[in-house]
Design a protein around this nucleic acid. Sequence first.
RNA 1: GCGCCCGUAGCUCAGGGGAUAGAGCAACGGACUUCUAAUCCGUGGGUCGUAGGUUCGAAUCCUACCGGGCGUGCCA
Length: 602
Amino acid sequence: MPFRKEIAFRLAALTGLTEAEIETCLEIPPEAALGDYAFPCFILAKRLKKSPQAIAAELAGSIEPCEYFERTANAGPYLNFYLRRAYLFAKLLPQILREGPAYGRSMEGEGRTVLVDYSAPNIAKPFSVGHLRSTVIGSALCRLYRACGYKTVGINHLGDWGTQFGKLITAYRRWGEEGRLAGEPVQYLYHLYVRFHQEAVKEPQLEDEARSWFRRLETGDPEARELWGRFRDLSLADFQRLYRYLGISFDSYMGESDYNDRLTGTIELARTRGLLMESEGALVADLEPYGLPACLLRKKDGAALYITRDLAAAIYRHETFAFDRMLYVVGAEQTLHFQQLFKLLELMGFDWAQSCLHVPFGLIHFQDGRMSTREGKVIFLEEVLQKAVELAREIIEEKNPGLREKDRVAQAVGLGAVIFGDLINDRIKDVEFDWDKVLDFAGETAPYIQYSHARICSILRRAAEKNKGGSSAAGPAGEGAPLPGDAAQDWDLTCRQHICDTNRAAQGQALTLLGEPEEEALVITMSRFSEEISRAVRDNRPSCLARYLLELARSFNKFYHNCPVLTAAEKLREERLMLVAGVRIVLENGLAMLGIEAPQEM
RNA sequence: GCGCCCGUAGCUCAGGGGAUAGAGCAACGGACUUCUAAUCCGUGGGUCGUAGGUUCGAAUCCUACCGGGCGUGCCA
C-alpha cells in the first residue's frame, strides 16, 4: 500500500524536505490510539526556528483528509496520520482477495537478474545442521527476490573439489571396502573422513599423501578421477533426495570442479594485471595496499585454491548470466575470503565486482564448542528433520487423530518448524544448537503460524458448508486436507468457492460493520505485507518477513478469541469471513516465500 | 598481536537516532456447552556489557575498555 509515499508526497510540498528524506523518518506510533503512521518534526525545528511541537500543530492544521487518511493530529512533536478504516476495509481487503496468491508480489525488480549462491555443501561429507542455514536463508532470498519481480538464478556451488578429496582418496585406498561404500555411501565416506583425521594425528605423513592425491586429481590421474567421480555421484544423489524433501531446488548445480579448465586462464589474467608475485614457490596476490592480507592463488605444488576457483566461477557467471547482483550466502567466518575475492575481481578490471555481496550468517555451535566434521562432532540434518516430523506426527495423533493425510501434514509442520527456526533470528547471530528449541512447536514458531492458517481454513470450510446446506465440495470424503504443492489441489475448493462469493460481495457493497480493534489491527497489519517483503529484500534478511508473519498470526489469534465469525449476524459474518480470508492469503503467501507450506488442517 | 562480528528480562531473541525498551520460553494465576487450547487473557521480571563522547533526543552513532565468537598465506 502506498501510504508512506502518500505521506511523503504531501509533506514534501509543505516542508521542503525530499520525499525520500521524509519516508526514511516515518515511523509507526507505539500505540494504536496515536495513529498509524507518524512523522517526527524534530528535523524541521532548526530550519524553521520553531519548536517541533509548534511545527506538528501547524502541519496538522494544513493537511486535508484524503482517500487514504481520514485525519492527522499532532501529539507533542509528532504529526500522526490516521488511516481511513473504510479505505482499508473496502479497498485493500477486496484487493487481497482478488489477487490471492499474487498478493504481495511486485515488479520492483523487473528486468534485473540476481544470482544467489547458497547451500554449497561439501560433497562427501554428510549434510549437517550447519549447512541448513545457508540452504534455508538462500532459498528464502531466492523466493523473496522472485516475488519482487527479479529474475533469480539459484546456484548450488558444490564443494566437490579440494584437498578433502585427496584425504578421502587416501583413506579409501588404505582402509576402504567396496561393499560398505555401495551400501551407505555418505555415511561411509564420512566415517573414512573422520578416521583419516584420527590417524593423521599419529601419522602426519598422511596429510602429505592426501595433498599429493589431490594434486594427481588435478592433473587428471585416472585412478584419482575414477574414485572422485564415484564419491561425487553417490553423495550428490543423497543431497538431492534431501533437497526434494525440503522442497528446495536450484537452477544450477555447477560446483567447484566445473571450473578446473578455467583456472589457468584466471591466473594468467591476474598475472597480466600485475597482481601476482611469487613467494616461497606459491603465487600470491598482494592486497596490502588495500588493507587486506595477501592471498594465495596457487600453491607451491601447483594446485589451485578455493579463491582461484571462486574467481573463475564469478567471471564465468557474469559471462553467462550477466547478473545485476550476486549474493553469496556463506558463513560469516569467510568474510575475509570474500573481501579478498571482490577486491581481486575489481583489480582484474571487472566493474561488476561491486555488484557482488557476501550475505554472512552466524555459526551453529554446541554449548561446549563448535561443530566439527573432522572430529565427528556434528548433528546430521536428516536426523533433525526426522525427529521434528515424528514429533509433529505424535502431536497430530494426540490432538487430531481423525485428520486425513497425517503424514503430509506432519511433514509440513515438522519441516516448517525447523526451517522457520533458522529464519526467525537475524542471520548474523551465532546460534546454539538445542534439541528442545528445535522441537518446540509453541510460541514464535512456524506451527503457530500454520495453526492460525488452519483455523482460518476451518472457518471458511464451515462457512461454505453452511452456505451449501451441508453438502461439502471438499472431495469424496468431505474432510479433505489437501496440501499446497499439489498443483490443482493446493487450494481447497470450498475455500476458493467461498472467497469467490465474498469477492463478489465485496464489489457490490461497502464493508461497514468491521471496526473492532482486533479487526482494525488485522487489516492494518496486512497492509504492511509488501513493505515487509521489500525490507527483507533490501537487507537480505528473511527474518523481517518471518517476524511479520508471527505478528499477523498473533493478531489473528487475538481476533479469533474475541470476535466470533460463524455465529455473528449474517452481514457481519460475511465481512468477517472476508477479513479472515484475507489473513489466510497473506499467511500462506508469506510462508511460501520462506519455503514453508501452509496445511489447511492440522 | 592485529582485524571483523556479537553483548537488551532467568533463558532465546526483536527493536539499529525519536513517544512509556517489546515478544516467545520458563514461573505463577485464569479461559475449552461457543469457528481446532499447537490457542488466548493476566501477574511478576530490565544499571539495554562498562566508561566517556556527539545530539534537542542514544539500547541505537563515535572512542576506549571488558566478556564471548570468528578470522588472520599453501583448508573450504
